[in-house]
Simulated scan of single mutants.
Amino acid sequence: MGTVANPPTIPEGAERATVAAGCFWGVEHLYRKHFADKGLYDARVGYIGGDTANPSYRAVCSGNTGHAEATLLIYDPTRLSYTQLLEFFYRMHDPTTLNQQGPDRGTQYRSGIFYHSPEQEKIARDVTRRANEQWWGGRIVTEILPAKQWWDAEDYHQLYLTKNPHGYECPSHFLRSFPDLK
């Protein structure tokens, strides 16, 4: 089971968002659970931000490929905004720990937003600034980078927590009850 170089077909009018927030199983699961009936078409787990073609899970976990475990969100922008997706991102993980989420350590577990357009970059920087000021006390270490090559993770990683309801879920993945961003 290898990876594929391109994301799945995107429905007409849909947009992509790509985030990294530690172990991708929990990130994908939380986004699906929260946005399934609010405009999220699909959530895929995979690898981004590295310099190795067709990386495997084992290679990414070695820390030698430069990739982050990430989640590709395909959504309907008429029902769900990029801002909403990023505010959720900052509520559902700890963006203040460099290369770590809970007990998971390594560059593959870094916090990152990988933007697909100049407009997404602008929104990512604005939401990050506001979340840093209002929620995280100036400690956010999240990378904001252009989305480059996406690689789907192996099939057994897709929908992992749906298929394995008692599988590992990073303890830092939960919704924090912050007030709305201003």
Rank of each mutant, 00 (worst) to 15 (best):
E87F: 03
L72K: 02
H93S: 13
T97N: 14
L73Q: 04
G66M: 07
I74H: 05
H116T: 10
R91L: 09
R79M: 13
H67G: 07
Y115E: 05
N99I: 10
G106A: 04
I113P: 01
H93W: 07
N64Q: 15
D76F: 00
R110V: 07
G63S: 03
S81N: 09
P103A: 05
T65V: 04
Y109W: 03
T65G: 09
P77T: 06
Y109P: 02
F114R: 08
Y115A: 09
L86D: 03
T83Y: 14
R91W: 10
Y75N: 00
E87G: 06
G112H: 12
L73I: 00
G102Q: 03
S111T: 08
Y90F: 15
T78Q: 14
Y90L: 04
L73W: 03
D76G: 04
T83R: 15
S81R: 09
H93T: 00
I113N: 00
R110P: 05
P118M: 12
G66S: 03
T97Y: 12
Y82C: 01
H67L: 05
Q84D: 14
Q84T: 14
H67E: 06
H116R: 08
M92F: 11
L85R: 06
G106M: 01
T71M: 12
L72N: 10
M92N: 12
T71W: 09
S111A: 12
P77F: 06
R91G: 09
T96F: 08
H116K: 01
F89D: 09
T65S: 11
P118L: 14
Q101V: 07
I113D: 00
Q84M: 13
R110Q: 09
R79D: 06
P95I: 01
T96R: 07
D94T: 06
G66Y: 02
P95D: 03
F89V: 02
L98C: 12
R79Y: 02
G66D: 05
P103K: 05
N64L: 15
Y82P: 01
M92C: 14
Q84H: 12
F89T: 06
F114Y: 15
D104S: 05
R79C: 11
H116N: 13
L73A: 01
T97R: 15
Y115F: 14
D104T: 06
